[in-house]
Design a protein around this nucleic acid. Structure first.
Lengths: 251, 251
DNA sequence: ACGGAGCGTTCGCATTGTGAACAGGAGCAC
DNA sequence: GTGCTCCTGTTCACAATGCGAACGCTCCGT
C-alpha cells in the first residue's frame, strides 16, 4: 500500500511549485520558486517549464505567471464538491431575506475556505469569494468548525496558527480562544464582534448532516453600526437556524 | 531550451489527473481516471495516491474525492491574476447601479473563464462564480473576446468548439458565428438574445488596456422579460461604456 | 460451477529526474 | 576599467524513479 513506488515525487514537487503563486507573488523567477519551495533550482526550473509547456504558465524568459488555464485545477475541486451547489440557493434566499452577506466555509488546516457566498454590499476591506481563505481562529465560521473537532485537535490548530491581532478586539491568548470555542460548542453558534476587522460583526452556525456531523459552517456578516451584538443574535439567529434545519434534511 | 530533460512527464500527467475531477464527476476510481486521461491504470493510481498523500484527495479504498486543499491550486492562480482585484469594485458598483448581475471573463481555449462576478438575482439555471467556464462561441463575452483575435485564430477556435445548440436561438453554423463576431468587432459590443439559455439576454463590451488591447470582457445578463434587445442596448450600454472607460485608465 | 470482463496491484527494466558542478552576468569596491 | 563576489540559470553523468506488461483478484452473467 504505502510502497515508495506509489508516490510520484516530481508530481508532489510540481504541486508545491504551483502553490507558490499567490496574490502577493504573482510573478516568480526560477530562483524565487526554489527559495519558496526549498527545492533545487534545477528542479524548480523543470516544474516551471512543464507548467509553461502544458499551458498553465506564461514565461517571458525571466518570470513565470499563471494563466487562466491554471484555474481549471482548483476550480474543478470546487465544482467537484457537492456542498456548494446544494447550499447556494439557500444562501441566495437567506441573503435576500435579511439583506446581508452570508457565506459557507469548511476547514483546511488552520484556515477556513469559502465554498459559497451570497454578497449584498461590500463591508469588508478584502474581496471574499469561493476559494478565499481566512485564519480560522478569529472568524465566526472558524470557531464553529473548530468547536466540532475533538478538543486536542482544535488546540493543535490554534497552536499552529498565527495569532497576530488584526483588529482592536482580536483575541491573542490561546487559552482565551479555546474558551470561546468551548462556549461556541455549548451555544451551537458563534458571534464575533470586530475581532478580525474593526466595524465588522459576524454570526455563524454549523451546517449539520442528517446524522448530526458538522460538515461546514454558515455565517452572516454585517457592519457593526447595523446592530448591537445581542440584537444581532435575536434578529438573525432564527433565520440561520432555519437554513441549518433545511439543509440537515438534505445532507 | 526545449531539451527533453526540461519536461517532467509525471507532473504533466498528474495535472491531467487533477483536471478529471469536475462537477459531473466528483468521485472517481483508478480505472475511471485511467479512461478519462488515457493514462495507464498503474500511472493513474500513482498520481491519485500522490494526491491523497499530499492531502489534495480523499480515498475510501475505492473512490477518490478532492479536498478543499485542492482549491489552493487554482485559487492561487485566481489570486495571482491582478485583473479580478482591480475590476471587482467596479463590478459591485455597476451591479448595484443597474440592479443586474455582471461579470468579467477571459478566454482560455474554446471557453471563457469567469474571473469576477457581482450577482444580483439568480436568473440562470447554472451557478456561475469566478473560475466557472462556458463555451465562448455562444456567450456575449466569448464573442467580444473572439472579436479581438485575428480572424484566423477566432475561426480555429470556432472550428474546435462543440456547436451543439443549447437554446432556441442557438447559432450552429460556423459561418454565421464568424459573421456575428465580425459584427461585434465593428460595433464594439455584443448582444446575445437567448442563444445559450432560453429567457436569458446578455450584453458585453471588451475591457481595454490603456494601449487599446482587449484584456478581458465585461457583461451584464438579465431575464429576457426585463427588456427588449434594443432597450437593453440603449439602457445599459452607456453604463458598460462608463466602466470600460474607467478601467482603461488603470490598465 | 464456470468463464470472462474489469479492476487494482506487482516487479524487473530503462527511462527519467536529480543536483553537484559549471558558465554567464550583475553589482560593487577600488 | 579591473577584479572580485554573489546570484542566477543551465548542463551532464549517474542511478533512482516511474513505466506498463503481466498477474491475480473480484464481481457478474450464464
Amino acid at each position: 500500500m504505502n510502497r515508495s513506488t506509489d508516490h510520484l515525487g516530481s508530481f508532489a514537487k510540481g504541486l508545491r511549485v504551483l502553490e507558490c503563486f499567490c496574490a502577493e507573488t504573482p510573478r516568480l523567477s526560477i530562483a524565487d520558486v526554489a527559495a519558496r519551495t526549498g527545492l533545487d533550482r534545477a528542479t524548480s526550473r523543470r516544474c516551471l517549464l512543464t507548467l509553461h509547456h502544458e499551458g498553465y504558465a506564461e514565461y517571458d524568459g525571466k518570470f513565470f505567471t499563471l494563466t487562466p488555464r491554471a484555474l481549471r485545477l482548483g476550480m474543478s475541486a470546487l465544482a467537484a464538491l457537492p456542498l456548494p451547489q446544494i447550499v447556494q440557493p439557500w444562501l441566495d434566499q437567506l441573503s435576500e431575506q435579511i439583506g446581508q452577506s452570508c457565506s459557507v466555509s469548511v476547514l483546511d488546516g488552520t484556515e477556513i475556505v469559502y465554498l459559497a457566498r451570497a454578497a449584498q454590499r461590500r463591508v469588508m476591506s478584502i474581496g471574499l469569494m469561493p476559494g478565499s481563505r481566512l485564519p480560522a481562529h478569529f472568524t465566526s465560521m472558524g470557531r464553529v468548525l473548530l468547536a466540532a473537532l475533538p478538543e486536542a485537535q482544535a488546540r493543535a490548530i490554534i497552536d499552529a496558527s498565527d495569532l497576530t491581532p488584526r483588529a482592536p478586539n482580536s483575541v491573542t491568548d490561546p487559552e482565551e480562544i479555546m474558551a470561546r470555542i468551548a462556549q461556541t460548542r455549548r451555544q451551537g453558534y458563534c458571534l464575533i464582534d470586530q475581532e478580525m476587522e474593526a466595524g465588522l460583526r459576524a454570526l455563524a452556525v454549523p451546517i449539520l448532516s442528517a446524522r448530526g456531523e458538522t460538515v461546514a459552517a454558515l455565517n452572516i456578516g454585517m457592519a457593526a453600526l447595523h446592530a448591537d451584538p445581542e440584537e444581532m443574535v435575536t434578529a438573525y439567529l432564527p433565520a440561520l437556524r432555519n437554513v441549518q434545519a433545511g439543509l440537515a434534511r438534505m445532507l
